[in-house]
Write a protein that binds this DNA or RNA. Sequence first.
DNA 1: AACTTGTACTTGCAAAACGCAAGAACAAAT
DNA 2: ATTTGTTCTTGCGTTTTGCAAGTACAAGTT
Lengths: 135, 135
Amino acid sequence: MEKMRSDCPISCSLDIFGDKWSLLIIRDIMLREKVSYSEFLNSEEKIASNILVNRLNALEAEKILIKEVSAKNKSRFIYSLTQKGADLLPVIIEMMDWGAKYNANSPRKELGKKIQKDKTAVIKELSKELKKKIR
Amino acid sequence: MEKMRSDCPISCSLDIFGDKWSLLIIRDIMLREKVSYSEFLNSEEKIASNILVNRLNALEAEKILIKEVSAKNKSRFIYSLTQKGADLLPVIIEMMDWGAKYNANSPRKELGKKIQKDKTAVIKELSKELKKKIR
DNA sequence: AACTTGTACTTGCAAAACGCAAGAACAAAT
DNA sequence: ATTTGTTCTTGCGTTTTGCAAGTACAAGTT
C-alpha cells in the first residue's frame, strides 16, 4: 500500500477495497463464475473499461487476485482469487444480507434466502467451494 | 437513493457506503463512543470537514444515522445509529477481522482477539449493547 | 492472404469527488 | 465584551471517475 491512513484494521481494509467497484469484481469471481476482463466488463453494473483495468491491477498488486494466461486461449487472461481474496467471502455475504434486508428493490433469491436461514452454514459451504479454485 | 446501479444487494450496499469514509464514521459511533461532528473530525484518519458534513448528511438521508440536538448543550448535535445502521455491525466486524489478518501494521487488540476466538459471540454481545443506544 | 471477431487494454476529455486551508455562524463560558 | 467550542461553508487545486473512441494483437473464417 502507498499510504495507510491509520493502523485501524477497518481503515486498512477500506484503503484496499473502499470504493464502489472492487468488491463487485470480487463478487463476480466469487459468486458468478466470472473470470475474465470481458466478463467483468459485461456485468450489469457496467463498469468503465479504464476503471476495470485500474482495479484489476490494484487487486492483483494487493495479492487479492492473480492473473494467468488461459490454457485454451493464449490471448485470454484468467483472474482467480487468492486465499486473501477468498477470505473476503464473509464481508461479501454480510453486505449481501444487509443490502437485501434494507433494499426493497433487491429481493432475496436462492442464496439470499439461504443466508437468511443460516449465514454461517452458507459461508462454510461456499468457502469450501472457493478453496478448490484458489490460486 | 438517486440512481442504483443494479438490483444486486451487494451493489446496493456499495451505492450507500462504498467509499473510504462512511464506514469509518459508523465505526466511530459503533465501537469508539464518538457521537459528534468534532469527535469524528478528530479521528486519527483525519477526514476533511466538507467530506464529513457530506457523509453525515448522506448517512442521515439513508436513515443509517439520526441527528439530534444535545440535551446538555444546544449548539451540539448528537449522531446516533438507527437499527439500519446498527445492522452494519457484522460488516464492520468482518472487515475488521480481514484487515487484522492481512495487515501486519494492524495487530489485534482486545476486540480483535475476541473476534478471532468467537466472532458470532462478539457480534451477539455488541449487538445487544448497541440496541440500548439505538434511535 | 485478407477479413472478421474476440480479448485486453489505452487515450482524451469532461464531470464529480476529494483534500486542504480559511472563514462564518452562533451558542456557551469567562 | 471577548474567547472558546461546535458545526458547517467556501474557494481552489488535485485526483478519481465516467464515457466514447481507438489501438494492439491473437485466433478463427472465407
